[in-house]
Design a protein around this nucleic acid. Sequence first.
DNA 1: AATCCAACGATTTTT
DNA 2: TCGTTGGATT
Length: 726
Amino acid sequence: MEDALPAAPAPWLAGLNPPQREAVETLDGPLLVLSGAGTGKTRVLTARLALLLAAKRAWPSQILAVTFTNRAAHEMRERVEALIGQMSAGLWLGTFHALGLRILRRHPELAGLKPSFSILDADDQERLLKQVLAEADVDAKHWPARQLSAIVQRWKDKGWRPDQVPAGEAEYFAAGRAPALYKAYQERLAVLNAVDFGDLLLHNLTIFQRAPEVLERYQEQFRYILVDEYQDTNIAQYLWLRLLAQHRRNICCVGDDDQSIYGWRGAEVGNILRFENDFEGAKIVRLEQNYRSTGNILGAASGLIANNHGRLGKTLWTTREDSRPLVVHTVPDGEAEARLVGAEIETLQHAGIGLGQIAVLVRASFQTRAFEERFVTLGLNYRVIGGPRFYERREARDAIAYLRAVLFPEDDLAFERIVNLPKRGIGDATLQPLRRLARAEQIPLGQAARRLVETEELRVNARNTLASFCRSIDGWRARLEREPHADLANAILEESGYREMWRKNKAPDGPGRLENLEELVQQIARFDSLEDFLEHVALVMEVEGGSEMESVSLMTLHGAKGLEFDIVFLPGWEEGLFPHQRAMDENGLAGLEEERRLAYVGLTRARRHVVVSSALCRMVAGRWLTPFPSRFIDELPDEHVERHMEEMFGRAPAWRYGAGDGRVINAPAWEVKPREDRAGQFEVGQRVFHRKFGYGTVCAIDHHKLTVEFETSGSKTLVDSFVEPA
DNA sequence: AATCCAACGATTTTT
DNA sequence: TCGTTGGATT
């Protein structure tokens, strides 16, 4: 296993620049790779994995590779496979939470859990905390479960169990009762045999502390540890890594202190700043050659981030030939901003830039709305990234609760969620004695229900309904062995009356929800068992694969981290919005600096061109503001920026940017192709087809907006490019 | 138990 | 301004 490096350069080392190569080949000892935006960090990580395996330094199972998001984990897995194929099978590669879960599943008893423990998501967590608050007689109006949930999560991020919360923390919440509430919450979780996301790592820490021999085994096993986005690690993650790395000390962390934007959810930039102290003899490699952006973009981003203090410091450079400077527009208001961006995108489109290469990155999600409206009017395909996720939708969560209730007889949260859904006439009058019995006997609600229906305590109607509900659950559970799991899931939705509930629902979103249930069943079929499906859902809230259609990406700056686009629009650069007032109020200078890093992340997403804009007037939360332009605009060095101020003073009124003639503005130097005009392709009464909604009839047309009455899905308003003539 | 209306509050969010 | 939530009403 201790072979020398291969003599001949292997394919995965080809094309690496000297620092990248150093980062890849420094296999032993602690290593920090400071990797600026666009400097090929994923390449380095994957090449390093390939080298470790090819040089037989370790078997796949002896390498731990950690990422933050499923997206990053997938990408890394794919790229390693592309490099070395099957040799990579068996790697411990995944998110902190997935790996933490994997370890926890092996020793649940050491964390006081039974093997089939379930994982609560944010929604479950909040419901449970609500119960805890109610039981403790805390006025839920003054002290919302939301807030307590955030407090508990922050404590878990710090690695504090209830008894470890320092005195004086969160004095403000419910007169200092938060630690006690946290304790009660953990006790409830233990009774429910459940964990929340934070527990996945926290229980790992507990196991490692309580059972040093278990820790030792993992320390032995993981000869090499790789960590992506190290600047985003919180204390619990840091402690976890440090424990695992202590023995072999072969830990390689990749990160960029300038891209640390998650301080507000517990990330500690300190982890990356302190790396040399934490791991004695650590080597630091800086990746500074940027392969992504033009010199103007890098110059602007560097000039901006230079205003931050306490950086590790990097100087990004590029050999890319330069093109345009950044453009900063001042516009009258939010609507004008949306018109401007829309018009510019049309110009780009006609110049041959694919919509998929264009992104609009906003500070706060409410900003997307104005752009969506404008894009619909113009008929520009767009997609909002990071909106509500599939498995967070109500119907998905309800259906999942049914599955959980059938699979896990002890899952009280699932039981409570569905016992009266659809409405069966089981209300508070039934639930209260039920809860009382369950509590008194220390048994799950389901079991309590079966006992309660044997007594005279409930009214006849409620008793019969509850009994029949329990029989249904038992019946489905009995069929688990016999029926294919997706068929059973489908049957449960049907026989429970849950589907019927939405069929009868006359709200416009009813058909859509039924479709989502179909989709859910299809997803279930892709897994080997319902357990596998539920485990996947708990960790990956998204359903993979989306529309393949080329479309403009609309998302928050946070959501854009790790992505890149040819053209990036950065609207809303106004004091108060960006930098956000609350970030500054709550965290002072540190908050401002994190906002600045966010701006840096935004700028460095762009390969070719950036358009910043700032509105003189903006409607926020129902009030008109007249903000100052963002200080970040002033911090962009003049030599990389072109400032368009002519729109001020009303010399260029808003209508000038209208759909038809908008492209007077800053037509880029790329070749202009003639416009492909789809207007007039549809008429009222025409029959059309949509990939998802099926066949329908056009009822109304407004520019590129069509209102279509679909045969199965009801009436919808959508962009004409999503439908075709039937 | 279901439906309606008023009051509230509105960064960023992965797992 | 608008969507959500919880209380009050039937």
